[in-house]
Every structure is written in structure tokens, then in C-alpha cells.
Write a protein that binds this DNA or RNA. Structure first.
Length: 672
DNA sequence: AGGTAGGCGGTTTTT
DNA sequence: CCGCCTACCT
């Protein structure tokens, strides 16, 4: 291992012998390098079996990076179940011990759409008028789970949440999940926590087996995650945490910044601080630290630039009249600098900001890629087809049943479905079992039998084919035999025809994705937890993403548009009127700024078109916290933009790119 | 049972 | 502004 490539502090961290250690690692100080080197050091120098080390990260991307780098250094392929995200590690654990929480090991992992559907049914069942939208209940349930509060713990629930009937709703929601053999994201961790705290033998087996625990992005762990990890820790307390309190941006998801702040006291251990930054130039680091210094709740550290090869360059700041002009400038500016040696990132606060930027990138014919955009496996057509596979794989999957029983249309309407559901309730059967039971015992009208029998036969046939044919063939079988493909092809509506073409493409892509897996369970696990199609990322493309998705990445050129009060900091954070949420927004600003190596471009637009109305806002307070930016000196570049506008409107309307077309339509519509 | 027109509500951020 | 849901029609 190249220990000599590490600086003094990094070396101290990597060569730590035993016991707990906290590594406070500022942006760009080589956090991932330290974590992977540490992993290798434990295997090579401390002589531990790599299977007995847990390395837990927040994103699948980070987990893969660790696996890759460790593989490279150790020169053999590590396939450890203990390297991954919290959710992937504990999903594997839960599958092994599912029966302890009344689940089968092939439980289904629900995405947020499924969760919403389920909670809606629960609200209906509990006869609760929906004055409060279902996502509010869902949110509170998720938070309760993060706080380790179980559905039966009525007093704790009511203490924590002020929503009316929340205890009943949470309880019924949990019951339903068990009935349909499913878990939501929070359950993966909470069920695991239950098993580890209620089965001493399982806990002991694991904590004796696991020799070292490494946690990445420690500042983003919530109470449940932290306690789960501590349950796996034995008396040697080999717990190695890497994090940066200034980059804690997931409090809204239950992350406790206190976990990292209190860690040194809790474990009475040393703290190694990494402050030598190898990424950014001085101007950027100064801007970052002048912003973050406005936060009170932090451990405090200052970064120093240690990379002499990074060019010095002033931070660029622009203000615009409208969002469209701002986006246009971003695309124009990138097009002037673009080459395939350097990397470009555009980081936004809200996904809604992406569309106008995307339009302009298309107009300038710049290669771009949206990172973490709409999830492939959450597309309607993909979920529809997957529901056939899921139902065939697990007959208790009522959500999938409801999704596809009449899709494509089989003439099975609301009334017929109600018969099936009522029968399932009174006989304690799943929906599909109930339908089969009704069909067998001749309780359905002949016309309904003739409509439902082909569906039953189809699901049985798919069920039969699982493990007999390749996943690829199974996918093709479903797409064709279900009539789904025909339905898409036979669309008469012209507008929808175009849409359906891309849906068919997506289904082909689904078949491709299927071909890369050995068995269905493995594939469904991937769909539930990774939820991205592993297409090769284009090296030279401009990356467009949210600030949250940008954590851990770096770019030569970074664009941060939309620095306005109400966008960034977000209106929600401002409404809450608490320093806590404002400080989190500020940390997000810090994350954004520190992604840049040497070219940082900040901007704001005073008017933004949302919900069909123009909204006006003031420049973000974070801008005035950067000393090197003088807001007063800048003025709207209205004149220039007017020329741009007229240029666009007068341009030749034939052979336009889709982006430009859309923009011209937009401008024409809103000229007045 | 299926199709469609108009009303209404909704935007953080992600595993 | 867009997409979803409901009410009403075929």
C-alpha cells in the first residue's frame, strides 16, 4: 500500500491500531482515500479477514467506489455483504432473519409511490377524512421509525407526533405491510434493530464476528442507524468514523448532527482533523469558510489549499432579470469554456430548476447528463411490467395485483375488484389468492370468469417460468404475453403515440437490465435499493444535479444558479424560522462551493416563473456572506438579454433543436 | 366499463 | 403551468 502518499494526519488515521476514532475530514481533504486505505490497512497490516469488516456508506455510488479501490489495491475481488449502504447491508441481514418479524425472506421493498398508495388505503380503511395529505402522515411515520419508535408504542408516538390519529394509522399501516410481505425504507432498519435487540444470540453472533466497523459520511447518520451499528460493536470498539459536521445536509431525513459532535465524549477517544485541501484554490476555500463561519453549531476547522497546481481564479458572480436569462448565460458560458479535458458541474437547489437549464444546454448542443433525475425503475411502464414479475414471485403482493389486474384493460372494473377485495378481507387471503379462490369455487359470474381466468393463468405461467428461463426471456414473455406491448403499440392518440415509443424503448432497456442478473430476487433487490440503471456515464458530459446529489464529487468548473431567498435558502427552511434549518441550508451552500476546483460561478435571477406566475425574489443572504462578492457593483444585464431575446425570436424556425423550439414558444407566450 | 373535460392542488432535498 | 382526480357521459 502506498502509505507514503498520505500526509501526516491521514497516516495517523489510517494506521490507527485499535479502538474508536473520529476523523473530521473537511471537503477535499482525501476522505475516501483515508477510508479505503484504512480498509486495506486493516486487512494487510492488522491481518483481519475482509469479510469481518463493515464499511457503511450513504450512497451506492460511494460503496462501489470503496469496493473498486479496495479491489484494486488488494488485487482480488471482494464480494463482502458488509460493504454497502445502511439499507443494502441491513436488507441482507433482514432477509436472513425475516421470520422474526413475521415477514418472508422474499419481502418486497416499497418505493415512495407504493408507500403513498398504501397509506391512502389505510386512511380510507380507518375512515379518516383527508384534511391532511397522505404524504404528511408518511413523513411522520418515517420520522417515527428514524427515532426508533415502534407502531405499538402508543404513548411515544403521541409524544412525538401531533397528527391526529397517527397512532392508529401507523399501526394499521404496519399491519398492512406485514400482510403484503413488504417493507418501506425505514422498516429495513427498524426491523433489523428489533431483531438485534430482542434476540441476544443473533446480536452476539454478529458482534463477535464483526471485527472492525467503518462509517463514511458519519454526520448524516440518524439515531436508528447509529444505534444499529453500535449493536454490532463488540468490546474492542473498533469503530472508525469519517465525517464533516459542516457537510451535514440530511437533518430533514432524521440525521443527527449531534452524533458526530458528541462522539469524542461518548467514546472518550481521539479526533484526527484533516484540513489540508487538495481540491480547490484559495479564493474558493475562503468563500466557503466565510459562509460556513456564520454557523454556530459546528466543531470548527479551517481548510488550507495544498494544491499548487490549481490555478488561482476569482469567483465569478452574475445577477439576472429572469431565470431564463440566467440559464442561457450558464449554457453560453460553458460553451465558451467547454473542452473534453475538464469537468463541468451545474448544481441546483431544486429539481424544478433543471428544466430551463436543460433547454439551454440542448440549444447549445452541449452534452449533458442529469444525475439522479427521475429514477428508471420508478417509471410507470417499468413498474407495470415489474408488477407482473413481483406478483408471480410473491402472491401476497396486493399492490402489484391492483396495479395490473386491469392493465392492459381486461374489462375488470371497480365493482369486480371490490368483490375480490371483500372476499380477501373476510377470508384472510391476499387479493390474488382471493381471486383464485372465487374462480375455483364458482362464485363469479360466467362473464367475469372469462375475463379473470386468462389473468390467473398468465400469472401462474410466469410463476412457473421463474428459475426455469433466463430473466431476459422472462421479461420478454411478460411484456408480450400480458398484452402490454400491444397496448402501447395500438395507441390511437397521436400525442400519446410519441410518448409510447419512448416507453417501448424503456421496456427494451428493462430487458437489458434483466439480462445482467442471475435470479429474480437479486434483481428485485437491486430495483428496490439501487434504483438506477447502470448505464455508462459519459466521461465528458456536463453533469446537472441537485446540491444533495453532488456531495462527494468535484468539478473543475462549477455553476451554482438560483441563489435567491426562497430558493436557496429554501422557503421551507425560512418558514420554519429556526436557526437549525437555516444552518443546514448554509451547510448545503458550503458543500456546493467546495465542489469547485478553480472556477466557481454563482448567480441569481430576480424573477422566476413558477406555477404559471412570475415570482420575484431578493438575492440570497449567503451571497452577502461571501466577502469577495460585492452585490452592489453588479447590475441586471437587461440590455444584453433583450438582444438575446430578439435574436432568438427572429431566428429561422425550421430545423430547430427541441430545446430551442420550447424556448421560443415560451418566450412568445410570455412576451406580454 | 371506459373515456374525457374541467377543477384543483402541488415543489425541497433521498435511501 | 402540469398532472391527477372526480364527475359525468357514452
Amino acid at each position: 500500500m502506498d502509505l507514503h502518499l498520505l500526509n501526516k494526519e491521514q497516516k495517523i488515521a489510517v494506521e490507527h491500531q485499535k479502538g474508536p476514532l473520529l476523523v473530521l475530514s473537511g471537503a477535499g481533504t482525501g476522505k475516501t482515500r483515508v477510508l479505503t486505505s484504512r480498509f486495506v490497512y486493516i486487512v494487510k497490516n492488522l491481518k483481519f479477514d475482509f469479510n469481518r469488516i463493515i464499511a457503511v456508506t450513504f450512497t451506492n455510488k460511494a460503496a462501489n467506489e470503496i469496493k473498486e479501490r479496495v479491489n484494486k489495491t488488494l488485487k482480488h475481488n471482494i464480494e463482502s455483504p458488509w460493504i454497502g449502504t445502511f439499507h443494502s447491508i441491513f436488507a441482507k441481514f433482514l432477509r436472513k432473519h425475516a421470520h422474526h418479524v413475521s415477514l418472508k425472506s422474499n419481502f418486497n421493498i416499497l418505493d415512495s409511490e407504493d408507500q403513498k398508495k398504501l397509506i391512502k388505503q389505510v386512511l380510507e380503511y380507518c375512515k379518516i377524512d383527508k384534511e391532511v395529505s397522505e404524504s404528511i402522515y408518511l413523513n411522520d411515520i418515517q420520522n417515527l421509525k428514524d427515532e426508533k419508535i415502534f407502531s405499538h408504542d402508543k404513548s411515544k408516538i403521541l409524544k412525538y407526533s401531533s397528527l391526529e390519529n397517527i397512532d392508529e394509522i401507523y399501526n394499521v399501516y404496519q399491519q398492512r405491510l406485514i400482510e403484503i410481505n413488504a417493507v418501506d425504507f425505514g422498516d429495513i432498519l427498524l426491523h433489523s434493530y428489533f431483531i438485534l435487540t430482542n434476540h441476544k444470540d443473533i446480536k452476539e453472533n454478529h458482534s463477535n464476528f464483526i471485527q472492525h466497523i467503518l462509517i463514511d459520511e458519519f454526520q448524516d447518520t440518524n439515531l436508528l442507524q447509529y444505534d444499529l451499528i453500535k449493536l454490532l460493536l463488540n468490546d474492542n470498539q473498533n469503530l472508525f468514523c469519517v465525517g464533516d459536521d459542516d457537510q451535514s445536509i440530511y437533518a430533514w431525513r432524521g440525521a443527527k448532527i449531534e452524533n458526530i459532535i458528541n462522539f469524542p465524549n461518548e467514546f472518550n477517544c481521539e479526533v484526527v482533523r484533516l484540513t489540508k485541501n487538495y481540491r480547490s484554490n484559495n479564493a474558493i476555500l475562503e468563500a466557503a469558510s466565510s459562509v460556513i463561519s456564520n454557523n454556530k453549531n459546528r466543531l470548527g476547522k479551517n481548510l488550507e489549499s495544498f494544491n499548487n497546481e490549481i490555478p488561482e481564479q476569482k469567483i465569478n458572480f452574475k445577477s439576472f432579470y429572469s431565470q431564463e436569462e440566467e440559464s442561457l448565460w450558464v449554457a453560453d458560458n460553458i460553451s465558451r469554456k467547454y473542452n473534453d479535458q475538464e469537468t463541468f458541474g451545474i448544481l441546483v437547489r431544486l429539481t424544478a430548476q433543471m428544466r430551463s437549464i436543460e433547454d439551454k444546454l440542448i440549444k447549445y448542443a452541449l452534452p449533458y447528463e442529469i444525475i439522479g433525475g427521475p429514477r428508471f425503475f420508478e417509471r410507470k411502464e417499468i413498474k407495470d411490467v415489474l408488477s407482473y414479475l413481483k406478483l408471480a414471485n410473491s402472491q401476497s403482493d396486493d399492490l402489484s395485483f391492483e396495479r395490473i389486474i386491469n392493465l392492459p384493460r381486461r374489462g375488470i372494473g371497480e365493482q369486480s375488484i371490490k368483490i375480490v377485495i371483500d372476499h380477501s378481507r373476510s377470508n384472510n387471503l391476499s387479493f390474488f389468492e382471493s381471486l383464485k379462490d372465487l374462480a375455483q369455487s364458482n362464485k363469479l359470474s360466467p362473464s367475469l370468469i372469462s375475463k379473470t381466468q386468462p389473468f390467473i393463468d398468465l400469472i401462474n405461467k410466469i410463476s412457473d417460468l421463474i428459475n426455469k428461463t433466463s430473466l431476459e426471456d422472462l421479461g420478454i414473455f411478460v411484456i408480450e404475453e400480458s398484452g402490454y406491448l400491444k397496448m402501447l403499440e395500438n395507441e390511437k392518440n397521436k400525442l400519446k403515440q410519441i410518448e409510447n415509443e419512448s416507453r417501448i424503448d424503456n421496456l427494451k432497456e428493462l430487458v437489458n437490465a434483466l439480462s445482467e442478473f442471475e435470479n429474480l430476487d437479486e434483481f428485485l433487490e437491486h430495483v428496490g435499493l439501487v434504483n438506477e440503471n447502470q448505464k455508462k456515464i459519459h466521461q465528458n458530459s456536463i453533469k446537472l444535479m441537485t446540491l444533495h446529489a453532488a456531495k462527494g464529487l468535484e468539478f473543475d468548473h462549477v455553476y451554482l444558479p438560483g441563489w435567491e431567498e426562497g430558493i436557496f435558502p429554501s422557503s421551507r427552511a425560512l418558514e420554519q424560522n429556526s436557526n437549525k434549518s437555516l444552518e443546514e441550508e448554509r451547510r448545503l451552500a458550503y458543500v456546493g462551493i467546495t465542489r469547485a476546483k478553480y472556477d466557481l460561478n454563482l448567480s441569481y435571477a430576480s424573477s422566476r416563473y413558477t406555477y404559471g406566475i412570475n415570482n420575484y425574489s431578493l438575492p440570497s443572504r449567503f451571497l452577502s456572506e461571501i466577502k469577495s462578492i460585492n452585490l452592489e457593483e453588479t447590475s441586471y444585464i437587461k440590455n444584453q438579454s433583450d438582444t438575446n431575446k430578439s435574436k432568438l425570436l427572429s431566428s429561422d424556425n425550421t430545423a430547430l433543436s427541441p430545446g430551442k423550439k420550447r424556448m421560443i414558444e415560451f418566450l412568445n407566450k410570455h412576451k406580454k
